[in-house]
């Protein structure tokens, strides 16, 4: 198993990174760190894909011109282009998601003054209780 891991070292590093990123996303309590964790996980998965497209000793998938005109089109010259295409799509997706979640985080911070989602819940329940207490007081006053 260890030899295989050494052979697949890019993939091994990628899954370690994605594990770290996933854990950050799940269990960090600070939202900014959660979002950084998301980005780490995404890039790690893309690293995994890009490593899967690599073939030893081949060139980047941009056609090379032959000496006498025309193009070198043998498939044994270039690496696999599919993972690169998928990762390009993925990078766009992850930047969109990052921007969206940061925007929501800022709105949350405006309301509660905290980046911690559990503290926000605490403050929310406190505020609600205060509001209810106020309403009750007002009702009592009206009755009196």
């Amino acid at each position: 198993m260890l030899e295989n891991l050494l052979l697949n070292h890019y993939e091994a590093a990628a899954v370690i990174l994605s594990g770290i990123g996933l854990t950050n996303l799940l269990l960090q309590r600070n939202l900014i760190k959660k979002i950084i964790g998301l980005n780490i996980m995404d890039t790690a998965v893309y690293l995994f894909l890009a490593a899967k497209g690599y073939v030893a000793g081949r060139a980047a998938p941009i056609l090379i011109e032959k000496a006498g005109g025309g193009w070198l089109t043998s498939s044994s010259i270039y690496v696999n282009p599919v993972p690169a295409g998928l990762v390009l799509t993925g990078i766009v997706v992850s930047v969109s998601v990052t921007a969206f979640s940061l925007a929501l985080t800022l709105r949350l911070y405006e309301h509660y003054g905290t980046l911690n989602i559990d503290e926000a819940l605490l403050k929310m329940t406190q505020e609600q209780e205060e509001l209810e207490a106020k309403i009750e007081d007002a009702e009592e006053e009206v009755l009196a």
Binding site: L5, V55, A56, T73, S74, S75, P81, V82
Partner: peptide, 28 residues
């Protein structure tokens, strides 16, 4: 995931399942 990776096709090998007829058509 590491246990999974240890069983995956080897890195950078040209006979991996991903290097199939689809890739050949794209390149050629």
């Amino acid at each position: 995931l590491l246990a999974t990776v240890a069983e995956l096709p080897p890195f950078g090998h040209e006979r991996n399942p991903a290097n199939n007829e689809v890739i050949r058509r794209y390149v050629e």
